[in-house]
Design a binder for these strands. Sequence first.
RNA 1: GGUCGGAUGUCCGAGUGGCUAGGAGCUGGUCUGCAAAACCAUUUACAGCGGUUCGAAUCCGCUUCCGACCUCCA
Length: 489
Amino acid sequence: MSTLHIYNTYSRNMEEFRPLHPSRVGMYVCGPTVYGPPHLGHVRGPVVFDVLRRYLEFSGFAVRHVRNITDVGHLVGDADEGEDKLAKQARLEQIEPMEIAQAYTLSYNEMIRQMNVLPPGIEPRASGHIIEQIEMIQAVMDAGLAYEVNGSVYFDVFAYAKNYDYGKLSGRVLDDLIAGAGNESRELEGQDEKQNPNDFALWKRANPEHIMQWSSPWGKGFPGWHIECSAMARKYLGDVFDIHGGGMDLLFPHHESEIAQSTACTGHNPARYWIHHNMITINGQKMAKSLNNGITVDQLFAGNHPLLEQAYSPMTLRFFILQAHYRSTLDFSNEALSAAEKGLQRLWNAVKVARNLVASESGEYDVQALAKECRVSMDDDLNAPQVIARLFEAARVANLVNDGKMKLTATQITELNALFETWLVQILGIAPEESSDHRALDGVMQMLLDMRVQAKQDKNYALSDSIRDRLTALGFTIKDGKDGSSWSL
RNA sequence: GGUCGGAUGUCCGAGUGGCUAGGAGCUGGUCUGCAAAACCAUUUACAGCGGUUCGAAUCCGCUUCCGACCUCCA
């Protein structure tokens, strides 16, 4: 049997996955900063790491999945010097920062739920772990790798680099960073306080206009950009744990700094496997405010955006994301999304067909071999696109058997159904979408279709066509098969 | 400017030395009162140039183009 191999950004190599403790896996994934509605860029990470978590659990591991909510915010650069994103948004909306965080945490979690992403076991908030962050900062200072200036605390990158490899994760060379070519135009707040431009803040002194601030040994202030993840991961997963995940954009400085902070405290790189997913583009372009192509998830679900020709369902979005490998960029376009929607529909049709297949004495297809291939694909750095290709192969088999063009034994039919259940539903998390009032609607529709059958038997085609046409006008699709009609919306 | 990654057919997107990826679209067929849907089948590739090799989408070099990070970011 094959075993999971995964690309570790830290070593830049494919590695066999072996957890620290047999049968248990600790996984930390960087969650959202909740200062705005969830957009397409927020959705890939949760889905990718949800599939990893599901696959690990399928493989028999107990997974402790921690995904943080950043409700303290990060500093805004440039014009909004030193101001917290959450604080800024709160001021704009004239409410408490926590109201901002709460509102967008709820909408994020609602989006996650619709995408069939399993909730993490622990969802810690940065604001609820100020004490842990202060303690960690103190530990870095005790190690002699941080210094205080005017109520702010900075990490001493130079001192750290004497004993440790700063820049290994992101492939950065400290000397190059020092040269800092092309960055002269940037005027970052607090730069003059730093002993070195590459030092980063662990704690920032709060000015009166900062509406989010806490007491600390260094006076009123708020935590730096990276310390929350280090502190919370350590609290819930220990000094060293298995997986730390996030988007590639977090490689530097966020994860590089996390490694530095944690190493300063514990002497260890906190995570054994660093896993990063690639970014998304929209019509081949980076999603950016200046390009006016930022699509929120709600807009996608409602089809309510100038770039969208129609609405796409949460499962279509999930399926679309998983059709590309997690380390490749993923391009959103109407054509690609609608192709995914139709492909998913084909898959679901086959799942239904597979449930009602008639068994033969002999079989002509090795279903077990196909299931094994799914496993091999997944073990090869989570190659979900290949798993999906094999599911389409399974769909083809189901349809062929249904058409009497291929034979399967009763056992093989069971295996085929299990293959869909395991790989499509359980591991990829693509669950059929059915609304709560589906059952009642189903009854009404069945009644109409029965009437239409009667009309057809009576050769009253005017009536039967009228029923169909009026249902079509309402958005229903009527399919006439050998064994009666079916419908979909 | 520095570092890293990418360029696959009409579109999306797997694939690291020889074996049909897959989906969507197009086309043909089956089914059908008609239509639609569904199903089956089929078609179009490896950015350019050079090199290594019996053999290259895959390895090497050069060229062109694109992107990411270097600053908050998913």
